[in-house]
Amino acid sequence: MEPIISMPVIAPNEFLGIFAVSTMVLVLGVGYAALVTLSKMGYLSRKWIPVSYIFWILQAYSLYDLSVRIHSSPFTFKVLMIAMLAYLFAPHVYFYLVEQAEKRYSQAEEHR
């Protein structure tokens, strides 16, 4: 079986970029989730929603950049981009879940 992952030689001066970009992926990802959640809850104005998408775009770019820096194969690259698309919905799904659960079970309290 051919491994899908290729093992590139990474030069010493390439590492800083790799570590910085992989940190950005997660930091921007959390920033995106936080902005979506807070603005949907009304703690931030609705104007922050577009900003959150900018976070997502930057995150997607960081992941793209990371995949270039570690010389990903085309297959890995596709998987990563699909994962990024999925992540676009993640905070919305999470928020929908907390909100619906809140509605359903705080009603349950009133019935008791």
Binding site: I5, V30, F95
Partner: peptide, 29 residues
């Protein structure tokens, strides 16, 4: 083959942590 399995699933490991984070934000708010 553990390269692919390890890379895929450990890249997913932060996802539940983000979920917890949203949950905490929501509760706190």
């Amino acid at each position: 083959y553990w390269w692919e399995i390890g890379a895929l699933f450990s890249a997913l490991e932060p996802v539940p942590l983000v979920a917890m984070f949203v949950h905490v934000l929501y509760d706190w708010g």
